[in-house]
Simulated scan of single mutants.
Amino acid sequence: MNYKVIEVDVTTIKVNAGQPRLAYDEDGIDALASDIRHRGLLHPVILANDGEELTLVCGQRRLIATKKLGWTTIRAMVLLNATELLETALAENFLRKDLEAFDQAEAFYDLLNEKQLCLKDIARLVGKSVSSVCEIAKLMRIPKELRHDETLRRKPLRFQIKLSRYGTEEDIHAAYRRYEETGQLPVMKAQSTVSTLRELSKKIADIRTQLGKIDFLDLDFDNAVHINLKEEVTELLAAIHGRGWFRIDLIRFRQY
């Protein structure tokens, strides 16, 4: 077993500087603290032991809430191997159960962007289908302030996923405000993602055909047009890679 569950002095826990959640809604923390006071801490926080100190991996909201309650210790699950913390933690069944949907989304986002994994890699790592990982990762479309909203965090996953599909952050904010006012999400505008992707695919094919007609040996490689083209292509590849649709070896495609 590569972890142990113990009571830890809250003053000895170091908050990971890489934690994606840095600010919290005070009302949300108060609501969580009230819930913990009445029902107890249902899930321990997750800590990593690097031999010298205990670093928080998961459960920052719970740690803040218990401090507000005046608790001096907190139940914690301590990882005994701090190497590749996020991958190790997600690979363990106990942490997959401990994470709320928005926490999972932030973890997946970190794996996609910081660890450069693709959706298929993450799905295999956490024991979920690619479609499930993709749906949860899309929760990052929801604005940060809403992801910290305690009421929204307690909503069913299917509600959170539906909210994430409303488009821009402004659209999502508007949809959630409508829900708060009426108890129902507004009718979603018709989406044609497949049609958009088909049209995009045709445009890319056309561009590839046009590029094939250009004799690049005749180009001045210091020409502003050529430099701009390189930058645009590089940014396109980076954007596709960042979306996690499929893996692209950006090193092979670096500008020269």
Rank of each mutant, 00 (worst) to 15 (best):
A33Q: 03
E181A: 11
T182C: 04
H173Q: 02
T209Y: 12
Q19C: 08
A123W: 09
V45H: 04
V45A: 06
L197R: 11
A91D: 10
G59Q: 05
A107M: 09
E170I: 06
T182K: 06
A238F: 07
I29F: 07
T234H: 15
A190P: 08
A239Q: 11
D215A: 03
K115R: 12
G40R: 03
F216Q: 02
T234M: 14
S131Q: 15
V233F: 14
K189R: 15
F216C: 02
E84T: 02
P143A: 14
I64H: 04
M188P: 07
E84R: 11
Q116V: 14
D149Y: 06
N16H: 14
V133E: 01
D30L: 15
T193G: 12
A82F: 12
V225H: 07
R243Y: 10
N2C: 07
L111Y: 02
T209M: 15
S132T: 13
L217K: 04
I172S: 00
M1W: 13
R96V: 02
I204A: 10
Y166D: 01
L80Y: 07
P20W: 10
T168N: 02
K155G: 09
Y166P: 01
I248V: 07
A137R: 07
L163Y: 03
V15R: 06
H173M: 01
A76E: 00
L32F: 03
H241N: 07
E84C: 02
R208W: 09
L54Q: 06
Q210D: 14
I240R: 09
V57I: 09
A76H: 11
G18K: 14
A105D: 05
H226N: 09
L250A: 04
R21V: 10
I122N: 03
V233R: 07
L139W: 04
A123E: 00
I136K: 02
L200T: 06
P186H: 01
I13C: 13
A31V: 06
V233S: 12
E235D: 13
A123L: 04
E7Y: 08
Q210V: 11
F216P: 00
F102S: 05
R62M: 15
L112E: 04
